[in-house]
């Protein structure tokens, strides 16, 4: 069965305040979908409804076609979650806490130790597996929380800002982990657009509890970021005007700005030139290009769709 997450007229009111309002969203297949929106847009509320942490006011949150509110146990059977920054019983060790989840999630007894060791290894917590969680920093706890999502080999993983509390290395490791989950459906909220661009193929943006757009990052960028994107090209040596001019004249390139002596910010129209085509053209100049980083396409799209915070 193809994994799926679906919100049908999903609504959540806190008092008279509608946090999520008639949200319709269907995500199907194995991919990573970024869930974006400003503070208070309803991202976490939506994810909490999908994980049974809060109830719906109306509408349904379906996981693999099963309504979470009607049968949470069946709905979450193949779904791992990480919502906000959970705390783990302070007196347990990571191994024990993950052991508890393995039992709850039905990981066969014979595989439990192996799964726990693997999961802790992936988040670099093996050394701490027998220490009590109560003595851990916020970042270490979050690593154990990330490990908890890997235990039961889930088809669907719901992650609410998984990098919260992590140091830059931890963030990078979480990105690597999410990237490696290519054979699953990952639904991940984040404020880090670069992170979403790096690991996700699609994005859903919401604001004031309503869905603004759900599409591939490429389509969202081309539709809402002025029809193109930006790449930051790094050079081994100082870039001269001649190189800059040559890039400006390439098909699809809209503008070239000098970020600093060794970096150019190239804005392009993705309908005319693809990202890999542009990369090949710039490399073909043999001007000492050493890095090629996708720039602010998603950010531009975000800013064009979401006009205000709160």
């Amino acid at each position: 069965m193809t994994p799926s997450i679906e919100a049908v007229q999903l609504t959540k009111n806190f008092g008279s305040f509608p946090t999520v309002s008639g949200l319709n969203l269907k995500i199907q297949g194995t991919k990573c979908v970024g869930f974006l929106g400003p503070n208070g847009a309803g991202k976490t509320t939506t994810m909490k409804m999908f994980t049974g942490l809060i109830g719906t006011s109306s509408g349904s949150a379906l996981i693999n076609g099963v309504d979470v509110e009607k049968d949470k146990k069946a709905a979450l059977a193949s779904c791992a979650t990480l919502i906000e920054t959970p705390e783990i019983y302070a007196s347990l060790t990571p191994k024990e806490a993950l052991g508890m989840l393995c039992e709850i999630r039905g990981v066969p007894r014979s595989e439990r130790n192996k799964r726990i060791d693997e999961a802790l290894g992936r988040v670099k917590m093996t050394e701490w597996e027998k220490k009590k969680v109560g003595s851990f920093s916020k970042g270490m706890k979050q690593r154990v929380n990330v490990a908890s999502t890997l235990l039961s080999d889930p088809e669907i993983i719901i992650l609410d800002e998984p990098s919260t509390g992590l140091d830059p290395r931890g963030m990078s490791e979480v990105r690597d982990i999410v990237r490696s989950l290519g054979d699953r459906l990952v639904f991940m909220s984040s404020h880090l657009l670069a992170e979403v661009t790096e690991v996700c193929q699609e994005v859903a943006m919401i604001d004031h509890g309503k869905l603004l757009v759900y599409d591939s990052i490429e389509n969202v960028t081309s539709k809402f970021a002025g029809g193109g994107g930006t790449v930051e090209v790094g050079f081994a040596r100082e870039v001269d005007d001649q190189v800059r001019a040559k890039i400006s004249r390439m098909p699809g390139v809209k503008s070239v700005a000098k970020s600093n002596d060794r970096h150019l910010s190239v804005s392009f129209d993705s309908k005319v030139v693809s990202l890999d085509g542009l990369f090949e053209s710039i490399a073909g100049l043999k001007a000492g290009a050493v890095s090629f980083e996708q720039g602010k396409g998603l950010e531009d799209a975000y800013l064009s769709l979401i006009k205000e915070t709160l």
Partner: peptide, 8 residues
């Protein structure tokens, strides 16, 4: 938050 969002 660690315990409840599970198939239980």
């Amino acid at each position: 938050y660690f315990l409840v969002p599970n198939p239980i």
